[in-house]
Amino acid sequence: MIRIVIGGQLNKQAIEKQVKEMGGDNVEVSVKSDLDAVMAVKKKQADYYIGACETGSGGALAMAFALLGKDQCVTLASPSKIKNEQEIENEVNEGKIAFGFTASSSKHILKVLIPAILKVAL
């Protein structure tokens, strides 16, 4: 079972629904405040952090950057760039555990991110 926490500032419930639909019985998903979500990952109570905001990094990843370290985090989509499928898969394969993206890109990003996480973690 892969444990995913959702933080960030926008679309938490929509992201939760999509992650549950895509991950099925392989994922346990919970929505938390940014601090609680990142602390769950830091304490090994969750495996991955996902968050969305307007920029893909500020409100989505600020706490993760601060508490997990920049080497554990990645912005998958910003207003000016959306990583492609191969880039997203590479980030997961390289061991990133906290992912941020813009709210407007969430459906596209999750369609690639969740299968990549399932492939690595299962």
Results as ranks from 00 to 15, higher is better:
66 A>K: 15
68 L>Y: 01
74 V>K: 06
67 L>E: 05
119 K>A: 11
104 S>V: 01
28 E>I: 15
42 K>Y: 03
3 R>C: 11
3 R>G: 01
47 D>N: 15
108 H>T: 11
47 D>G: 15
36 D>Y: 09
1 M>L: 12
52 A>L: 05
88 I>N: 00
19 V>E: 04
86 Q>V: 09
121 A>R: 15
28 E>N: 15
110 L>F: 02
3 R>Q: 13
73 C>M: 08
42 K>F: 06
53 C>N: 06
121 A>L: 12
36 D>P: 03
41 V>W: 07
19 V>A: 06
82 I>H: 08
31 V>P: 03
19 V>T: 05
111 K>S: 12
83 K>C: 11
74 V>Y: 01
65 F>D: 04
16 E>T: 09
56 G>R: 14
61 L>T: 04
95 G>M: 02
35 L>V: 10
117 I>M: 14
49 Y>S: 04
117 I>D: 08
39 M>E: 13
110 L>S: 07
75 T>Q: 13
38 V>T: 11
76 L>A: 05
12 K>C: 09
38 V>P: 10
39 M>W: 03
84 N>M: 07
45 Q>V: 07
17 K>G: 01
13 Q>S: 14
5 V>G: 04
97 I>K: 09
118 L>R: 05
92 V>S: 06
83 K>H: 00
6 I>F: 12
49 Y>G: 04
4 I>M: 11
34 D>H: 12
6 I>V: 15
7 G>V: 02
15 I>A: 05
62 A>V: 08
90 N>V: 09
63 M>Q: 09
12 K>I: 06
78 S>K: 10
9 Q>R: 14
102 T>N: 13
1 M>S: 02
42 K>G: 01
83 K>D: 01
118 L>V: 06
89 E>N: 07
119 K>S: 11
9 Q>V: 06
71 D>Q: 08
48 Y>P: 14
56 G>N: 14
69 G>A: 10
6 I>G: 13
54 E>S: 13
62 A>W: 00
106 S>V: 00
115 P>H: 00
16 E>G: 10
82 I>S: 14
84 N>F: 00
54 E>A: 14
51 G>F: 00
78 S>F: 00
90 N>T: 12
44 K>I: 04
30 S>A: 15
112 V>F: 03
20 K>V: 04
14 A>L: 14
79 P>N: 03
48 Y>K: 14
20 K>N: 11
67 L>V: 01
12 K>D: 04
4 I>Q: 06
102 T>R: 13
83 K>F: 00
31 V>K: 07
4 I>V: 11
87 E>F: 04
96 K>C: 03
102 T>I: 06
9 Q>N: 14
74 V>R: 04
50 I>R: 03
94 E>G: 11
13 Q>P: 04
106 S>L: 08
27 V>G: 02
118 L>G: 07
27 V>R: 09
90 N>H: 10
96 K>E: 01
65 F>L: 13
46 A>E: 09
19 V>K: 10
62 A>P: 05
51 G>D: 02
46 A>N: 10
78 S>C: 07
79 P>V: 02
11 N>C: 15
107 K>S: 14
6 I>D: 08
76 L>Q: 02
85 E>Y: 01
